[in-house]
């Protein structure tokens, strides 16, 4: 009798196991990767999308813009993600890589703007920075402070050394790693912006673009700039604990954590919703996501997801994304991208 009992047990257990196995492994949900800056917006849309439609809720992994493009451009097929979020525009090299791997038609969707905030703990003194300060404090090589047109390894240890107006405080900046779009945008807008203020460097741009870029975009590696991972939330928490440090992250994170951290003003402009929307805050960048056109009629729910994301109630002036800190595009721009999405206009570079 024992044996029968055992067999019955085996039977039920294995039938349970088999029942849990789908007959075939077709993917029925959208797979999204990409920027950690867009992640909070994408997850909100995803959640709404899952709740309001009969489709499965998409899966979102936060991999950084660069990592996202890398996965996205690896090829078409269910093994590859359908959408990648990016906190900067796709680069030509990435686009070419996509083409090479058979990802030929890509739909570009700009979703709004995000400022890059440079913030520190509320407990510490407020910073008021110029782009040049940022460049001098964070670039790997800087013009010799003694003058002349030669470069030396970044000698600055405190903010006061960079600019006498700034507090006498060790340079310690927590920021995203190079895979992140925030880092790219920060290097492009803030460091290059500061870099250009040296006339002789600006002149270099025409002569030797590569050297110019290398100079302006390379961040120092001697410990003053600390890579705090892709997770911007973590940076906020770390800033709260360490009042000596500054952090670089998206405006939405600043907006969510105004009780913990304060944004430094750049060129005298404070990071505010309005100042970013009107473009007066100098370090702000557009946010995007990119869609594989080949997947649109294959993976269930792709079209519906796109229309959810591009609906007024999501990305509009009073949409729920604005509540989360996304700065909406002007109405005209929204209309343009909406029609792009509707027509699935493929990106050309």
């Amino acid at each position: 009798m024992k044996i029968i009992k055992l067999l019955v047990l085996v039977l039920t257990v294995s039938s349970f196991a088999i029942g849990a196995v789908p007959a075939q492994a077709a993917r029925d949900h959208i797979s999204i990767v990409g920027s950690s800056t867009v992640y909070p917006f994408a997850t909100v849309v995803v959640e709404r999308f899952g709740k309001t439609t009969s489709f499965k809720t998409p899966k979102v992994e936060s991999t950084g813009s660069g990592g996202g493009f890398k996965l996205f451009c690896a090829g078409v097929g269910v093994g590859h993600p359908d959408i990648t979020n990016a906190s900067r525009r796709i680069k030509k090299s990435e686009y070419e890589k996509c083409q090479k791997n058979g990802v030929r038609e890509i739909v570009e969707v700009k979703i709004g703007y995000d400022g890059i905030a440079i913030a520190n703990s509320k407990k510490a003194a407020k910073f008021s920075l110029e782009l040049r300060d940022l460049f001098l404090a964070l670039a790997k090589n800087v013009p010799d402070p003694k003058g002349g047109e030669q470069l030396i390894e970044n000698p600055y240890k405190t903010w006061k050394e960079v600019n006498p107006k700034l507090p006498n405080q060790k340079i310690e900046v927590l920021g995203p790693p190079p895979t992140s779009g925030t880092r790219d945008a920060f290097a492009e807008l803030a460091l290059e912006g500061g870099c250009k203020t040296f006339k002789w460097i600006a002149a270099m741009k025409k002569k030797d673009k590569k050297a110019y870029k290398r100079l302006c975009h390379t961040i120092r590696e001697d410990g003053a700039y600390i890579e705090a991972g892709e997770n911007d939330n973590l940076i906020v928490q770390k800033l709260q604990a360490n009042s000596n440090a500054l952090g670089v992250f998206g405006f939405s994170f600043l907006d969510q954590n105004l009780d913990k951290v304060q944004g430094s003003s750049i060129k005298g402009v404070k990071p505010r919703f309005e100042s970013i929307a009107d473009g007066s805050y100098p370090i702000s960048r557009p946010l995007y996501f990119y869609v594989k056109k080949a997947h649109i009629n294959v993976i269930p729910g792709m079209k519906e997801y796109l229309s959810e994301f591009t609906s007024e109630k999501a990305w509009g002036d009073e949409g729920y994304l604005a509540d989360r800190g996304l700065i909406p595009m002007p109405k005209m721009e929204r209309r343009k991208f909406l029609s792009d999405v509707k027509g699935l206009k493929a990106l050309k570079m």
């Binding site: 660069g66 990592g67 680069k91 090299s93 190079p178 895979t179 290398r214 390379t218 961040i219 590696e221």
Partner: peptide, 10 residues
Amino acid sequence: AIRVDQVGGS
């Protein structure tokens, strides 16, 4: 650098 034109660290 994970792309050709990105300026990564060393």
